[in-house]
Amino acid sequence: MKRYDNIILEQDNDLAVITINRPNKLNALNRETIQELHDAFEKADADPSIKVIIITGSGEKAFVAGADISEFANFSVKEGKKLAAKGQELLFDFIENLSTPVIAAINGFALGGGLELAMACHFRVASDNAKMGLPEVSLGVIPGYGGTQRLPSLVGKGRAMEMIMTAGMIDANQALAYGLVNHVTSQDELSSLCEKIASKISRNSSVAISAAIRAINANFEDGINGFEVEIHEFGTCFGTKDFVEGTTAFLEKRKADFPGK
């Protein structure tokens, strides 16, 4: 397996776990880490044996405490635009549209680019010590990795406006009440809960799940009719081996063994 400097990629049967491993920097995202994350997600997504990916941070303090500000403090307008565009394409949009489901296990601070990374995942589970926020306006800038777009779609426009304008943090229970995370658990049980959810997902058709991701995401794209995408994806499922196996297993009253094709 490829060696990375800033992350750890592990596989346990049909589950891949990506850990951002910069504990001394509270797992802050720099350009090298973003590139390594892209490579790891691409590798995991291309492996048909992997059904679910979990992403988390090393240590007990932070998922990702933000972007590495020292890298872009002296950027020009042109460089700033390029930074946001490249980051969104390489990692954040890439994860959102990945065909393999991605669960963010938020094990501490998820701030700025860290919260944007968690929001790009298909859903989020947090430990009870987690704190989340987009503090960019306190630095004279705005979220640039999709935060102004994904946060309102998850928590509503008013709450997103307040979170971004105040640059404040919310705790895990507030995030749960907002709908920003799906579950809150203790730090000790975070991994096992995410693995339990991943296990439930992996029993189902990976082909159908990929189709569902495309259909759900279509609703949030300008100029795209999500209902039409759903109809197309629904119909396409009928031509898959997973559909044949799923319906046959149901009629034969047995557990489906999906080939993933």
Rank of each mutant, 00 (worst) to 15 (best):
K82C: 06
N21D: 13
A212F: 12
E189M: 15
D68T: 08
G239N: 12
D171K: 03
D5C: 08
G235A: 11
S186I: 07
S127V: 00
T19M: 05
D12E: 14
I164D: 02
N6R: 09
F75Y: 15
C194H: 02
I55A: 06
I201W: 06
T33D: 07
F234Q: 15
T185A: 10
E162Y: 07
Q187G: 11
K157G: 06
D93S: 12
Q88W: 07
T236P: 00
F94P: 00
Y4F: 14
K261F: 13
D222N: 14
S70R: 14
R22V: 03
T33I: 05
A28Q: 09
H122G: 03
G168A: 13
R214G: 03
K25D: 13
A84E: 07
F72W: 14
V229Y: 06
N225G: 13
E228K: 15
R214D: 14
L176Y: 08
K25H: 09
N24P: 01
S58K: 05
L83G: 01
F258S: 02
K43F: 09
L193W: 04
F258C: 03
K261G: 15
D47F: 08
D12C: 06
E252I: 04
I53N: 01
G168Q: 15
A84Y: 07
K200L: 14
V125F: 03
K131D: 05
G147D: 04
F258K: 01
F109Y: 13
L251M: 11
H232F: 13
T148V: 12
N204D: 14
V137E: 10
A160W: 02
V17E: 11
H122S: 05
T185V: 14
I7R: 00
R214S: 12
F243T: 06
R22E: 08
G239Q: 11
A28Y: 00
T185F: 05
E71I: 04
L151V: 04
A104M: 06
E162F: 09
E32I: 07
L180F: 03
G239C: 12
L83H: 06
S76E: 10
I197P: 02
N6T: 15
V125Y: 02
R203F: 07
D242L: 05
I34N: 01
R254N: 10
A40P: 00
E10L: 11
S58F: 02
K241I: 11
D45Y: 12
K82S: 11
R203G: 09
R22M: 08
L117G: 03
